[in-house]
Simulated assay, not measured.
Amino acid sequence: MSPDWQAARRAVARRLLRRSAQAGGATPIDAASITRVLVARPNHRLGNVLLLTPLLQELERVLPQARVDVLAGPPFAACLLQGYAAVDRVDTLGARPLHEPRVLWSLWRALPGRGYTLALDAAERSQSARWAVTRSAARWRVGMVDGDAAGLTQAVPHADCGVHQAQMPVRMLRVALGLDPDAPLPPLALRLRADESTAAEARLRALLGAADVAAPRVGVFAEATGAKRYDDGYWQALVAALRARMPRMRLAEIVPAHGRPMLPQLPGLHTAPLRAAAALCASFDLVIAADSGLMHLAAASGVPLLGLFKATDPARYGPYGARQRALVTPHLGAADIARAASDLLPRA
Results as ranks from 00 to 15, higher is better:
Pro186Ala: 02
Gly307Pro: 08
Ala85Tyr: 10
Pro54Leu: 04
Gly307Leu: 02
Met246Gln: 11
Tyr320Pro: 00
Arg205Tyr: 03
Arg229Glu: 00
Ala119Met: 07
Arg45Ile: 01
Leu294Glu: 05
Leu242Phe: 11
Gly219Asn: 04
Thr134Pro: 06
Arg193Tyr: 02
Ala276Trp: 07
Trp235Gln: 01
Arg114Val: 15
Leu93His: 11
Asn43Phe: 06
Tyr320Ala: 14
Gly113Val: 03
Arg15Glu: 14
Asp285Gly: 07
Val328Asn: 06
Asp88Arg: 14
Glu196Ile: 03
Gly143Cys: 10
Arg243Cys: 03
Tyr116Ser: 05
Asp195Cys: 13
Asp285Trp: 13
Trp235Gly: 00
Leu50Arg: 03
Ala194Glu: 14
Pro42Trp: 14
Ser292Arg: 01
Trp235Ala: 01
Ala137His: 12
Ile254Asn: 03
Leu242Asp: 12
Ala257Cys: 02
Arg130Tyr: 04
Ala326Ile: 00
Ala138Ser: 07
Ala132Asp: 15
Val239Phe: 00
Ala202Met: 07
Arg347Asp: 12
Leu177Lys: 06
Gly321Ala: 14
His331Phe: 08
Ala335Ile: 10
Leu345Cys: 09
Ala311Ser: 09
Gln65Pro: 10
Ala340Lys: 03
Asn43His: 06
Ala222Met: 00
Ala206Glu: 12
Gly302Val: 06
Tyr234Gly: 04
Ala8Leu: 12
Gln167Thr: 10
Leu204Val: 00
Cys79Thr: 15
Ala23Met: 05
Thr312Trp: 05
Gln154Trp: 07
Ala95Gly: 10
Gly333Arg: 11
Ala199Trp: 05
Leu286Cys: 11
Val62Thr: 13
Thr329Tyr: 12
Asp160Asn: 06
His331Arg: 08
Tyr320Lys: 01
Ala210Leu: 13
Gly209Val: 11
Phe309Leu: 09
Asn48Ile: 05
Gln6Glu: 07
Leu38Ser: 15
Ile337Ala: 00
Leu50Ile: 15
Ala199Met: 11
Gly302Asn: 11
Pro247Leu: 10
Val12Lys: 13
Ala137Phe: 05
Pro74Thr: 02
Val163Asn: 02
Gln265Met: 14
Leu55Gly: 10
Trp5Ala: 15
Leu111Gly: 09
Thr271Ile: 05
Ser106Ile: 08
Pro304Lys: 03
Gly94Lys: 06
Ala150His: 07
Thr312Asn: 10
Ala300Asn: 13
Asp88Ile: 03
Ile34Asn: 00
Glu100Asp: 15
Ala214Ser: 11
Leu269Arg: 06
Leu207Glu: 01
Pro28Gly: 08
Leu280Thr: 06
Pro273Gln: 07
Gly226Val: 02
Leu208Ser: 06
Leu46Phe: 15
Val220His: 00
Leu93Glu: 12
His99Trp: 13
Ala40Trp: 07
Arg130Ala: 12
Gly259Ala: 14
Leu38Gln: 14
Val142Leu: 01
Lys228Gly: 04
Thr27Phe: 00
Arg102Val: 11
Asp313Ser: 13
Ala110Gly: 13
Leu111Asn: 08
Phe309Thr: 00
Pro75Tyr: 08
Pro101Met: 10
Phe284Val: 03
Leu177Arg: 02
Pro112Ser: 04
